[in-house]
Amino acid sequence: MPPLRVGTNVWPGYEPLYLARSMGLYRDQDIHLVELHSATDVLHLFRNGELDAAALTLDEALTLLQDQYDLRVILVMDVSAGGDMLLARSGISALPQLRGKTIGVEHTGVGAILLDGALAAAGLTLDDINLQRLTVDQHHQAFLQGQVDAVVTFDPVATYLIQEGARKLFDSSRIPGRIVDVLVVRKEVIEPNQAVLEKLLHGYFQAVQFLKATPQEAVSRMQGRLGLSEKAILQSYQGMKLPSLQENRYYLTGAPSPLQTRARELADLMLKNELLDHPLRFSQLTDPRFLPRKIP
């Protein structure tokens, strides 16, 4: 049987998967981690059948459901608590000053959620700004070249821009619980890969435990992939919550599960922002069966 192909873009919240690999917890013949530049690339490969599983924001998972992909959420990886942010040029010091300015944002639910919160806090609407759609791998260059006055982004790009003088005006700590990253799996690959999925999640939680117990050693392993200093990586984890095994059981269990309820609320917001074409109908979204019973 070929290895399970798991795709991610570069984001500290997904890094425990790669940490588990570096700890020798995944065998190449069982699990193949596919590293991509952006969430847009991850979605593209998933749609093309080149990935069996993917680390995505919940809104990205909903776009796949809209396109008739049958999938299950088997893990809540992180909940943003400041890690997603709106950064502006040094001459812009307050949110109301964004009126008439050009703001770069990825065409995703996360971008819409963060921008919606920032504009509401500023007393502005989309009609008051110029919106420029950018994938995350374009954020850094577009900001430095003056193509945008502000950008909705996240680490590692956010750290680079702040180091180069960008000013943080708003972040996801002001909209708690609204931005969630999950691991999704195609329904058709679940049954033949149950043992591998259990190994995948077991290794993930062991890596999270290692990160919390020995953060300096853990982040030293992450530096090469993330391209950030140890200090910057540790700071990025202060902007998110990595749900525990017990919290994952809470999120994923029930009919409907708490995560499925949150997904319905998010789908309504996305429909309002024209990120979905039609209302979604899904009876089962989460599957907690592969969560380990305990972490050694």
Rank of each mutant, 00 (worst) to 15 (best):
A118S: 12
A118K: 10
L119F: 07
A120T: 11
A120I: 06
A120C: 04
A120D: 12
A120W: 04
A121G: 06
A121C: 07
A122H: 04
A122Y: 05
A122C: 07
G123H: 12
G123D: 07
G123T: 07
G123V: 09
L124I: 11
T125I: 08
T125R: 14
L126D: 14
D127C: 01
D128C: 10
D128E: 12
D128R: 04
D128W: 05
I129N: 10
I129F: 09
N130L: 14
N130R: 15
N130P: 01
Q132C: 11
Q132T: 12
Q132S: 14
R133L: 13
R133I: 15
L134E: 05
L134F: 09
L134V: 09
T135N: 14
V136H: 13
V136M: 09
V136D: 10
D137Q: 12
D137N: 15
Q138F: 10
Q138R: 14
H140M: 06
H140K: 11
H140V: 06
H140L: 10
A142G: 06
A142C: 04
F143E: 02
F143Y: 12
F143A: 09
F143R: 05
L144R: 13
L144A: 12
L144E: 14
L144V: 05
G146L: 04
G146N: 13
Q147C: 03
V148K: 10
V148A: 08
A150D: 09
A150K: 00
V151M: 06
V151W: 01
V152E: 02
V152F: 03
V152K: 03
T153Y: 03
F154G: 00
D155A: 15
V157R: 00
A158M: 10
A158P: 08
A158I: 06
A158K: 00
T159P: 01
T159L: 08
Y160G: 04
L161H: 08
E164N: 11
G165E: 12
G165S: 12
G165V: 13
G165L: 08
A166H: 06
A166S: 08
A166P: 01
R167G: 00
R167I: 14
R167C: 06
K168F: 00
L169P: 02
L169G: 03
D171C: 01
S172Q: 01
S172I: 00
S173M: 04
S173K: 08
S173E: 02
S173I: 01
R174S: 05
R174Y: 07
R174C: 00
G177I: 01
G177V: 07
R178I: 01
R178D: 05
I179L: 08
V180K: 03
D181F: 08
V182E: 06
V182N: 03
L183E: 02
V184P: 03
V185H: 04
R186F: 04
R186S: 12
K187S: 15
E188I: 06
E188K: 11
I190A: 08
I190E: 12
E191P: 04
E191L: 14
P192N: 11
P192D: 12
P192E: 14
N193G: 10
Q194T: 13
A195P: 02
V196S: 03
V196G: 05
L197D: 03
E198V: 09
